[in-house]
Design a binder for these strands. Structure first.
Lengths: 209, 209
DNA sequence: TGTACATCAGTGAACGCGCGTTCACTGATGTAC
DNA sequence: TGTACATCAGTGAACGCGCGTTCACTGATGTAC
């Protein structure tokens, strides 16, 4: 088969699974979790509606894969932010939080899929692993922040950092914090950065007591 | 019409609007936002599927009404908690937070409806008013907490309290905090109370600086 | 190197289902006189 | 107090639609010999 012939949509797709995941993300972004359908995804991937069955048992299966992929990209975003931030533990923690919030605002429906109750219905080792990696990174960052103050975080400290970050992300996502949503991106980021820094600094200061 | 005759399901319902809201809550609770349908609600209310149209334009209209009712009950739950709590400002704030989380766990789908992006599609003065009342109460409680320390909260302080509480609620709701979800209710409440109290006390202490 | 055959990925027609919407209707209520 | 009529709330049959699922099929790939 020549390189040119590839254009003519060969009978076998080559990487339909990957294409379905990509199409699934678009479907999720455009139609939301409520409007999500396997037929829609197939249509988007330019493939017959029965084709996905060879790769995913049902919509739940695809959503599970999407959530797993989401968690990997979620973590990746946080790490990217950290690379660009100052190296001190608090700045690193803040950068991670900004990445968390970034992701939520860039992919609202996917974010909701990842954290909303009951969906995806299927669990999978792949999903569990990806979610776990994100949590481990959070724990690692909080631990480092406490270590800088000569202590170790309690379980509740980690959860508190998580809850604050997640709460901001979800409220921004749901457009419930009016004045924050109305702001320009740069300005909003400044405000959020400030909030996270203040809070994280206080939390880490507990290590000194 | 005698009182006994009422039992025989009169042609006119009497309070179909109220009944539809009640049925809508049940539909939401059992089938979630994704499975929600007007026909399902009508069925649940024991009424023909075309009847709701006289009271709500479409599913969005009913969901808007449900969200508004949700916000009222949400606030009510917080106030109830406050009545049973100690009167000092921090305990009152913690009580409010516990009510917030209570509500989220008791009505996961409704909670998501209230705070999830994009739904309900319609806004209404009724909904705006109910949501506003809940936010005002939060602001009032935070202000009182700061006043006890001789200061006034910045806008960011209010948001921080909100974000932390909301984050906890949403993560618990989404079952993402495993060990917290696996706990018995009483124990979980103890842990959450402790977290909120620690954090709120620190935040309020900013008033002294 | 060539041939035969099993396996696999994707097709497209057909099905039944629940949904929202429409519409002519009917039963009850309220108001005018 | 009774009668006529307008209005309103709810009915149930019918419609078209998109969905998931099934199934016999076909085109491509890989393997055995």
């Amino acid at each position: 088969m020549t390189a040119r012939a590839v254009k003519a949509a060969p009978y076998h797709h080559g990487d339909l699974r990957g294409a379905l995941i990509k199409a699934g993300e678009a479907e999720l972004a455009e139609r939301g979790l409520e409007g999500f359908s396997l037929r829609g995804v197939a249509r988007r991937a330019g493939v017959s509606h029965a084709a996905p069955a060879h790769h995913f048992q049902d919509a739940g299966g695809l959503l599970t894969a999407l959530a797993a992929e989401g968690f990997r990209r979620f973590l990746h975003r946080q790490l990217q932010r950290q690379k660009k931030a100052k190296p001190d533990p608090v700045s690193q923690m803040v950068a991670s939080g900004l990445g968390y919030i970034d992701f939520a605002m860039a992919h609202p429906a996917l974010f909701r899929l990842m954290f909303s109750s009951g969906r995806p219905a299927h669990t999978s080792p792949e999903l569990a692993e990806a979610a776990r990696a994100a949590f481990d990174q959070l724990e690692h960052d909080v631990t480092r922040m406490f270590a800088a103050n000569g202590g170790r975080p309690a379980r509740d400290d980690v959860l508190e950092v998580w809850a604050l970050t997640h709460g901001l992300a979800d409220l921004l996502n749901g457009k419930r914090m009016r004045f924050l949503c109305d702001m320009r991106k740069a300005e909003r980021e400044k405000v959020v950065t400030n909030m996270l820094r203040t809070s994280f600094t206080e939390i880490a200061a507990r290590a000194r007591r």
